[in-house]
Amino acid sequence: MADSDRKIHDSQTLVDGNLLAAKAFAAAGVTLMFGVVGILVTSFAKRAVSIVIRFLAFHNEQSAAQKYNTLELPSGVSGPESIAFDCNGDGPYTGISDGRILKWQGSKHGWKEFAITSPFRIPKFCDGSLNPAMEQVCGRPLGLKFNEATCDLYIADAYFGLLVIGQNGGVAKQVAISAEGVPFRFTNALDIDQNTGVVYFTDTSTIFQRWAYAIAMQIGDKTGRLLKYDPRTKEVTVLLRGLSFSNGVALSEDKDFVLVTETTAAKIIFKETFMGNFGLHKIIVEDQK
C-alpha cells in the first residue's frame, strides 16, 4: 500500500462494517433486500433499514422459498457459483461443478447445456462430476457476465483463465491466461463496464489452484490480484496485487470505481478505475474481530 493510501486509511475512523456495507448497497442503487433472519443477517438488516433500504425478513428457508421460485439443478450436479442473464433477458445461465455452463429454458424444457470452458472435456468422464481433481480437465466456470452490446458471455474459469463465448454457445475461447508474465492460477470473479466492454476480474492466487483453496486460506496466501482486460487492445493490466484470497468484483454504477473482496482478510477494497493502476485504493470495509 502506498504511503498516501496508508495515511488515508489510518486517518479514517473505523465504523460498523454492516453500516458501511449497507451504504455500499445503497450507493449501487439497491432499495430492497430480503433474507432469512439470523444473528448475522439481523445486524445487517438493522443498518440497511436505518438508511432507508427496505428489508423483507423471513423466519426460515421454507418461508423464503415460498416467496420465490426455486430452479433445481439437474440431478447429480452442484456448485452454481454465479448467475447471468443475456442481452435479451433470457436465462439465467450458471456454471456448475462438472465444467458446464447451463441455460434455463423455462419450466417446460428446464436446463440445457450452453457452453463449456475446457477443450479437453470428455462428457463420459466429466458430466455430473463432483471431484475437484477432475476440474483441471473438465473446467470449473466461476464468474459469469454478459457484454450487453455484443451479447458475448465472459467467463472466469478457475483453471482456464478468462474466456468468451458468443450467443450460440459451444466451446469458449480463451482471451487471457496471464498478466505480466505470471500465469493465472485461480481465475475467480468478474464484472464488465458495459460502456467500454472492459472486464474487471480476480485471480485469487498466483500459487494455489482452486482444488487447493483450503490450503491457500489456512496459510494466509496473499498473492491474489485484481486485473482488467480490454477487448479492444487485448491487453491485461494488473490493478492491485498482494491480495488475500481476492474474490468477488463489483463495478460501480458510474463505472468510476470497482470493489474487490479479500476473503481471508475480511476486507472490501475500493479501487478507482479512471487512472488505471495509479488510481487511489483504500479499505472501505474491514472486520475488526
Rank of each mutant, 00 (worst) to 15 (best):
A27N: 11
A27T: 11
A28D: 08
A28Q: 12
G29R: 03
V30L: 05
V30C: 05
V30Q: 04
M33G: 02
F34S: 08
G35F: 03
G35E: 09
V36L: 03
V36Q: 03
V37H: 10
G38Y: 08
G38P: 07
I39H: 13
L40R: 14
L40C: 05
L40A: 13
V41I: 11
V41R: 08
T42M: 02
T42K: 12
T42G: 01
T42L: 04
F44M: 10
F44A: 12
F44Y: 09
A45K: 02
A45E: 04
R47E: 06
R47Q: 13
R47M: 05
R47S: 09
A48K: 00
A48E: 00
A48F: 01
V49R: 12
V49G: 04
S50I: 00
S50Y: 00
S50F: 00
V52M: 01
V52L: 05
I53V: 13
I53E: 11
I53W: 09
R54V: 12
L56I: 15
L56Y: 15
A57R: 10
F58Q: 02
F58E: 03
H59P: 00
H59G: 00
H59L: 01
H59S: 08
N60E: 05
N60T: 02
N60R: 07
N60C: 09
N60Y: 03
N60S: 07
Q62D: 15
Q62W: 13
Q62C: 11
Q62F: 13
A64R: 09
A65K: 14
A65P: 00
Q66D: 10
Q66L: 02
Q66N: 09
K67W: 14
K67T: 15
K67N: 13
Y68P: 00
Y68K: 01
N69P: 02
T70E: 06
T70W: 03
T70L: 09
L71T: 07
L71H: 11
E72T: 14
E72W: 10
L73T: 06
L73F: 11
L73P: 02
L73H: 06
P74E: 02
P74V: 04
S75G: 05
S75K: 13
G76M: 12
G76T: 07
G76P: 11
G76V: 12
V77Q: 07
V77S: 08
V77Y: 07
S78R: 12
S78F: 13
G79E: 15
P80L: 11
P80E: 06
E81D: 04
